[in-house]
């Protein structure tokens, strides 16, 4: 019988999750190890975001279990097939996030807060793909960055690699 934990979102929704699934979060794993995880675990994550986080964790968990059951023979082939499945799942997952940037950024912060390295780097890559072709002004707006260069300084720094500003 799997050990279950109750996670409480910032908007007071309860999620019942298997220990193995949620232990991927280093933050929660540590809480469990320290014995701090009794009753409901309150998290500073909205229910909408937490649902996404758990969706990711369950998918990853699924993958790890399957791998453990494999014997070495034929593993390579199986891994390849699995990789295809995961890719497909990840594509769907990222398409949804691209469509809703607020969820994407919330999820990014949540994965940082919950210490989920795999999800964090997946999301960082996703964001990187989204911003790679953009111009500085768009990025400033997106990340809410204040331009602290004087016009002269900005002109100079832009001139250093002028070609990088061409599409």
């Amino acid at each position: 019988m799997a050990i279950m934990y109750a996670l409480k979102s910032s908007d007071n929704e309860i999620f019942e999750v298997e220990q193995k699934v949620i232990e991927q979060s280093e933050t929660i794993k540590k809480m469990i190890e320290d014995g701090a995880a009794t009753g409901e675990i309150p998290l500073q994550v909205s229910s909408k975001t937490l649902a996404k986080v758990l969706e990711w964790c369950k998918q990853r968990q699924h993958k790890t279990v399957e791998n453990e059951n494999d014997d070495n023979k034929g593993k390579r082939k199986k891994e390849r097939d699995e990789d295809d499945d995961i890719k497909e799942w990840e594509n769907k997952f990222s398409d949804e996030l691209k469509a809703d940037k607020d969820v994407l950024f919330d999820l990014l912060l949540a994965s940082n807060y919950l210490d989920l390295p795999a999800l964090l780097s997946f999301l960082c890559q996703l964001v990187a793909d989204m911003v790679a072709g953009k111009m500085p002004e768009e990025i400033r707006r997106m990340f809410n960055i204040e331009n602290d260069f004087t016009p002269e300084e900005e002109k100079a720094i832009t001139a250093e690699h002028g070609w990088a500003f061409q599409p």
Partner: peptide
């Protein structure tokens, strides 16, 4: 992209 984003801040 990184060379371009140097001028952000």
């Amino acid at each position: 992209s990184l060379l371009r984003f140097r001028c952000l801040s």
